[in-house]
Design a binder for these strands. Structure first.
Lengths: 221, 221, 221, 221
DNA sequence: AATGAATGAGAGTTCATTCAT
DNA sequence: AATGAATGAACTCTCATTCAT
């Protein structure tokens, strides 16, 4: 035994290696699609050996799910913080829209994974819905409810439907942006989307009453 | 009739077999997902031999694409007919929403294929966008333009954004319905979605002016 | 029943249809190779339906074997006739060489099938050797034996080896011709091949004795 | 040795595994034929998993081609060395013949692959001809030319035709040996083949002049 | 912790052959 | 006799995962 033997110890998990793998996975999934992406592609993009992936993730699917979970956890947490900083439904819807479009508009690969790759099977989708999407919609729904309580939003608004319509509009902005050949700023669509959601598309005759919204049956929402 | 008429014709390609395969594919894709679905599953669901599939389709992918193309072609054609039968942007948006939700709300498997399976890779998505989605959005956009011209819709509405918001709202109704454990009528959401789109979510003070919509930059959308 | 009903009777095997299929098979086998050739290719080249092939042949392999058998039978029969018309080993070897090169040199597709496709597995090769090739070599061997008896050919010639060398030389002329990009007359090589076989390649010193041929062990030959 | 040496190297590609696969392929191709041979047969013969084959070869075809290329490269290289060690066309032709028959006469499976399996389609044949066969014939041709220059071989010999006749004779010795049910020594045929090639088959009258060889037209040769 | 060679299950597709018409 | 739609066995190659080093 020489004096240096104490140096030799089990190497610790290199910090940051897990993140490098996740970053590599975003790139590879976005470019090739989840199914066509090979674990070996991700490994080589991350600069690690194939087997190393399995020291950090249980399976290829686990990479995708972890990716989603970790980004969503951070996104929702930060969103709640930002939300707490402003007052009123209108401002809060604006915060949500901007936050949503900023997250995805800032990284096209990530947006592709979120909009396309993650939705490739009901298996993932169900997990998505049961989990984060439910939380996400709950945040929107709370803001709408708050707006109805303080009189900012119409009391006759079918809340769940409005929540989905708002989310659906944002979601489509992102999908459309991804698939567009043109480069344009996604975040700048946040304000118009909120304004359209709030004010509606109809031309507005001051003297005429706006018709009441139809009641929606016991839908799931 | 000449004397040779008894020379029996060789068996003709069974009519309807192609459709049986497509129907089987909808079921199988919806239940297992496109990638997990095996061609053999579709064959057995359709009651034909594996090889028979390839008499009607070039590949597994061709089944999915044909499925989509054929249903969309019919859907859009019928939609245009219904649209021609009514007047005014409001009524027309209602027709579009009802038509959209009726198509998918009437067949959950088909809806799953359209909302989930068909969007599993940018490859399909691009085909989808470049093709039918573009046509579909064009129909909505024309109706909105028409509404702006006849004064029904706000002239300051960013048309492309509004088109996407409207489509996104409908799309989310369907996705949400698919993933819901509950059974509810999707078509009944058509009217409320249109009313929300037209009237907006904001409570409405007759005496106050509704704020102008923000201009959106040169975006593609 | 009308007066023409007597015309209607089971169609006879169209004469010549079998030959059309064989001709088609030569073309298709030569162009695509036996394994890559599809029965459907042969059928369409022959202008018949796939199933019709099986009225005339038991299997794809049967087509290849029949092709070979029928052409060889005719070739050998004609060869024997021509052989009977001339006298002497030298003349007869010339007849054989010309006959061989004329058969294959006149139809490149046929030559390809004979030189390449038919030899693609020991299964075919064994059939070939056990059958026609054996007969063919026997003819050559007889001519050589005859030449030795009448003093035209060297008595110390190892007969089997010489037979194979003669056949091998002709065979290589054909293979080489097939694979050549250039067009040239194959039959014109008959005379030089025979002369080389008879006279040898060595320069010849009248005063020196030509060395005796080494004895070859009990080979199969 | 430093303290890190215990960090064990990842397993290296087992040396010799590639060769084991090639040896297995020779056996399997020879026994079943190239097309009938399944990759799984080769794998199990080599004692590796199916997938392992594809770590060393791109495809089944690549196995056959590599087999051929590698053996021919070595064969031709060794042949050139042996050739350089002797003087004179006659001795050199003997070296070529012995070398040729020794290579194939020493391994019946290999001979089968070379004589039969490798020639199963014009695709392979063309590769064969364009490549190694061309080189091989060039070696023979050079020896013949040399013999003509130094007066050992007849100056009126059509060189290309003689080259092909010599190769064809050797080739037929091998094919015949493969297909023979009897076991006999192939190499012992080298000397007689060369002697026949040099001296010819005709009986020889000292007083009579040997006839001149006929000229051969512009053949490819 | 890291490696990457090895594994082997799995599936899309082809095509010789059959047989109802 | 002729057709050609239908069959289904067969096979190459891929790639997620394992594990000896």
């Amino acid at each position: 035994m020489n004096g240096y033997s104490f140096i030799i110890m089990a190497r610790k998990r290199t910090p940051g290696k897990r993140d490098r793998i996740l970053e590599a996975a975003v790139k590879v999934f976005a470019r090739k699609g989840y199914f066509a992406a090979r674990v070996a592609d991700i490994a080589s993009q991350a600069g690690v050996a194939d087997g190393t992936i399995y020291l950090y993730f249980r399976s290829k699917e686990d990479i995708l799910v972890s990716l989603f979970d970790e980004i969503m956890a951070e996104h929702i947490e930060k969103g709640r913080e930002e939300l707490a900083a402003v007052e009123g439904a209108e401002a809060r819807l604006r915060v949500i829209a901007q936050h949503h479009l900023r997250l995805l508009g800032g990284n096209r690969d990530l947006a592709v994974v979120f909009q396309v790759e993650f939705r490739q099977s009901t298996k993932f989708m169900e997990r998505f819905t049961a989990g984060w999407l439910h939380d996400y919609l709950a945040v929107i729904s709370e803001v709408i409810e708050e707006g109805q309580k303080d009189g900012t939003l119409r009391p006759d608004l079918p809340r769940k439907l409005a929540t989905k319509a708002f989310f659906g509009a944002l979601d489509e902005m992102v999908t459309s942006w991804i698939l567009s050949a043109k480069e344009y700023d996604l975040v700048s669509q946040a304000i118009p989307v909120v304004e359209l959601f709030l004010g509606g598309a109809a031309a507005w005759e001051p003297e005429s009453a706006r018709p009441a919204l139809a009641a929606v049956g016991r839908e799931r929402g």
